Structure formats: structure tokens, C-alpha cells
Simulated assay, not measured.
Amino acid sequence: MKRKNTLSLLLMLVMALVIVGCGGTTEPKQEEKNGQSATPTTLSVGLIPAETKISAETLEKFRAYLEQETGLKVTMNNYPDYNGVVEALNFNKLDVAYLGPLTYVIAHKKGGAQAIVAKTAKGVPFYYSYILVHKDSKYNTLEDLIADKQNVDFAFGDPNSTSGSLIPGMELKARGVYRGKQDSDFKSITFTMAHDVTALSIQNKKVTAGAIDSAYFDKLVEKGTVDGTQFKKIWQSEKLFQYPFVVKKDMDAATIEKLQTAFLNLKDKEILDAFAADGFVKATHQDYEAIEKAAEADGRLK
């Protein structure tokens, strides 16, 4: 009888363990329910090379600020080109990234990245693409430039730049003088890979004309990197929504809120100047739908 009771108790114990085990596998974690990863303890931040001369000291100050405001360990990563940041984000090598509008919609399409804040310049989250020439240039309008296209050395920025490539490139395509990197009616096409290089190339008369981000150009003039009196603007785009900071697809809501709060409270001029910004506002993917449509029309989203 004692042996029978012992076997019964053992059987009941095994059944209880099985039930508990099954219960643990059928009830997903809260993060899994919401399609989010667990709250991270570290953040890896990647930056596009919109401007080539952000000092190591400024980047360290920015890293320390984010670390203090979020309570998470933060690492900062500079990339040599726009596409490198997109790929790192899509392959989960980055948690947060600073992107141009075009690179953001590409990252969203490829890997589900989400915009959380956008910078402001002159108090608004908009900017323009400019085509500039030297003040001594005989060209006063884009029409003048195109009429003499065979003598024009034209500079774009990074191929994945919104204001330095996509938008001005579409304008020149619409006017029938530009079809791609290796196919245009200009004397030459150059990709400088950064807005400050484009501006300096125009100022030093190394190129005839160039496409540039209006906010970065204004900041370069303010800092004395270039002399604003040495330029003429011969074309300006419609307004574009500003550069965002984005997070990877499955970032948890609590971390997103911490990051948004940190950016909205950022007042340090040295850090803001590094991004040609005077502040940040919240942003969503909807803010970039116009850029997304332009990228689709230009065959950039596949």
C-alpha cells in the first residue's frame, strides 16, 4: 500500500511539472506579444557622413549625453558612406542611426527602421536642396547652366543623399541633361560624398556647380568653413522633411521614449551644430512619405 501511494505521488508530481512547463511555453513574454525586443542595456549609434569634420570631442560629448539621459551604455560609430549605416542598421549591428531622408526610407523598406525624431533648422523641421555656383559664375539660373551644359563640371554629394543627389538629380533628369552617374550631358559629374566638400569645391572653383543641403550650407557659412558671399543660388527645391534619428525595427517602446525625451531636451549648441540643427521634434514615417514616393519614382526602392 505504501509503495502504491508513493507511485501515485510521483505520478502527480510529474504531471504538475508537465503542466507548469506547458504553461510557460504557451504564454509569450510581453515583448514578444508586442513584436518588440527586450529593453536593451546598451545602444550602438551610427552616423552618416553628411559633413566630414565632426570632431571626436563633440561626438564623445554627444555619446556621454545620450548615456546620461537614457541610463544605457552608448557606443558611437562613424561610417564612411550613407549606405554603410543602412546596412549596419538592417543587420542589427546598430540600434540607433542618424540618416538622411532618402537613406531612412531605404532603411525602412529594407529592414523596417522607424523614425523617432527629426532635427530642426531655424526652428522648423524642413530644409531644401540648393544648386549653387560661384559668385563669379556667368550662370544666374538653372536654365543658364543647362544651356551651356557641355562646359559644366557638376558636383553631387553622396549618391544616397536626398538633397545632394536624389532631388537635384530628379530635377536634372526631368530637364533631360542627366540620366545617371555615367550618363549625362555635362562635361563631368563628381560625387563629393559630403556637403562641406561640395561647398568648398564650388568656392575654390574646382567644380562649376553643385547640389547641397540648405541647412548644412547655412551652418558652414555660420562656422566660417566657407564664405557665403562667394556663392550664388541658381535653383531651390520644394521643402523637404529634415534628417531623422531612427531606431531598428523591433526597438522597445520604453527605450524609444527615453531617446525621444533626450533629443527633445538637447540644448548643447556644440552638439546641435555638429548636426546643423537647433533642436529636435518627434517624427514618424508619415513625415517621409513624399521622399518615399520620390525614391520610388527614381527607382531607389526595390
Rank of each mutant, 00 (worst) to 15 (best):
D183S: 15
K181F: 14
Y178T: 02
K149N: 11
I167C: 13
N160I: 00
G176H: 05
Q150C: 00
Y178W: 15
A194P: 04
A174N: 14
A174R: 09
H195A: 15
D136E: 13
L142C: 04
G176D: 08
T192L: 15
D144F: 09
M193C: 01
K173P: 02
T141G: 03
T198S: 09
Q182Y: 10
K135L: 00
G180V: 05
A147N: 15
S161E: 06
V197Q: 07
D196R: 00
L145E: 10
N140C: 00
H195Y: 04
S184V: 10
T162K: 09
V152P: 07
G180N: 11
G169W: 02
N151E: 11
P159V: 02
D185S: 14
D183R: 06
F154R: 06
L172C: 11
S188W: 00
S184Y: 13
D148L: 06
D158H: 06
Y139W: 04
M193H: 05
T192V: 08
I189C: 07
L172S: 07
D196Y: 02
M193A: 09
F154V: 02
G169V: 10
K181R: 08
D136S: 14
N160M: 13
T141N: 01
T190K: 08
D158K: 01
V197M: 09
H195D: 15
M170N: 12
D153V: 13
G157R: 06
K149G: 05
L200M: 13
F186T: 08
P159A: 01
R179H: 15
S137G: 05
D185A: 14
T192P: 00
I146F: 02
P168F: 14
H195I: 03
I167Y: 12
T190A: 03
A147M: 05
Y139I: 06
E171K: 10
F154T: 04
S163P: 06
T190G: 01
K187F: 04
R175Y: 06
D185G: 12
E143M: 01
T192Y: 13
A194F: 03
E143H: 07
P159D: 03
L200V: 09
R179G: 11
V152Q: 07
M170T: 12
S161H: 06
K149S: 08
S188D: 14
G176F: 02
D196P: 01
Y139E: 07
E171F: 03
A174E: 10
L200G: 02
S161C: 05
K135Q: 13
L172T: 07
R175N: 12
Y139N: 02
D183N: 15
N151I: 01
A194G: 13
P168M: 12
D148P: 07
E143K: 11
F154S: 03
Y178I: 03
Y178H: 06
F191K: 00
M170H: 04
E143N: 14
E143C: 00
R179A: 15
A147G: 14
V177L: 09
N151L: 07
I189N: 06
S163T: 15
N160A: 07
K181A: 15
G169K: 12
T162W: 06
S163A: 15
D183G: 04
M193R: 02
D136V: 00
I167K: 09
F186Q: 12
L200Q: 14
N160R: 09
G157M: 11
A147F: 01
R175C: 03
L145Y: 04
K181Q: 14
L200N: 12
L142P: 02
L200I: 12
I146V: 13
R175S: 10
G164Y: 01
F156L: 10
